[in-house]
Structure formats: structure tokens, C-alpha cells
């Protein structure tokens, strides 16, 4: 089996894997980082969104081998010394979740949006979330949370 090496949440990890191992399987099953969820497994729902080299991707539709040598950030890597990332705090504050299944992907996707556009309007946020499906909230509080986080992060 080939060896895959990547930096996950700041720590270098190396494992022998079958080439068919998906990035999301690698994170969940090899590394035990189960915050990244598998929803549809067809790159529609966005529950598995993580960052690879700074951009959001669906980890169900990438091979672990394709991330060899990359920097990967999962939901577990966002908080800093036990302090929630402003996006996580905003989701909590604005009740941007109900069952929570889509939340890790929503948060990771939203963090990528604010990197590109620190002050997105509501339309931009809703458009950006096309690849993240939530079946509980109707998106309303998710959008509010992202707007709030944007404000916080702009300072």
C-alpha cells in the first residue's frame, strides 16, 4: 500500500492506505476526526467540506492520495486553544443549527467564503451555500450567523 503524508490541523500525519481511500474516510477512520461528516457521498450535500491548501472541498469526492503533501483543516482544527472560531461562536449564538449534521460543512464552507469576501451580502451568502444542504433550519439562522461572524472577523 502506498504511503500518504499530509498536514492535518497543523500536525503532520503519515499512513499506508489503499489508493481507493477517500479523503473523508482517511480523516474519519484513520485519524478519528469524525467531525467531518458523510452525508450524500455524491458531492451534493456539503456535510464533508474541509479545507485543502486553504480552499473548501468536498472530502467525499477526493482521494486521500490526491491530498498527499497538502495542508488539510477540518472542523476540529478551527478552534484555537479551546476558544471557538468566530464562525463556530456565531453559529452557536444565532442558533444556526438544529440537528447539527450539516454544521461542520456549513462552518468550513462559510470560513472559505469570508476569506474571499470579508463582507458578503445576504444574496452572496445564500448563493455560496448552494453546495451545503441543511434540512432543518431553512438556512435563515445560518445566514444570520455568517453575517454576524463576518462582522466580528472584520473587527
Amino acid at each position: 500500500m502506498p504511503t500518504v503524508t499530509m498536514t492535518v490541523n497543523g500536525q503532520q500525519v503519515s499512513r499506508d492506505v489503499e489508493p481507493r481511500t477517500l479523503l473523508v474516510q482517511f480523516l474519519r477512520e484513520e485519524l478519528g476526526l469524525t467531525g467531518t461528516h458523510v452525508g450524500c457521498d455524491t458531492s451534493q450535500c456539503g456535510a464533508c467540506v474541509v479545507h485543502v491548501d486553504g480552499t473548501s472541498v468536498k472530502a467525499c469526492t477526493a482521494l486521500a492520495m490526491q491530498a498527499d503533501g497538502s495542508e488539510v483543516t477540518t472542523i476540529e482544527g478551527l478552534a484555537n486553544n479551546g476558544e471557538l472560531h468566530p464562525m463556530q461562536a456565531a453559529f452557536k449564538e444565532h442558533h444556526g443549527l438544529q440537528c447539527g449534521f450539516c454544521t461542520p460543512g456549513m462552518v468550513m464552507s462559510a470560513v472559505d467564503l469570508l476569506k474571499r469576501n470579508p463582507d458578503p451580502d445576504e444574496d452572496t451568502i445564500r448563493h455560496w451555500l448552494e453546495g451545503n444542504i441543511c434540512r432543518c433550519t431553512g438556512y435563515h439562522n445560518i445566514v444570520k450567523a455568517i453575517q454576524h461572524a463576518a462582522k466580528e472577523m472584520r473587527g
Binding site: S43, V57, S109, W128, G131
Partner: peptide
């Protein structure tokens, strides 16, 4: 095309 994450890949 697709959504932001699809466009990233």
C-alpha cells in the same frame, strides 16, 4: 458550474 466546492476541484 456546480457549487463553490465543486468549482474548487
Amino acid at each position: 458550474i456546480g457549487d463553490p466546492q465543486v468549482r474548487n476541484r
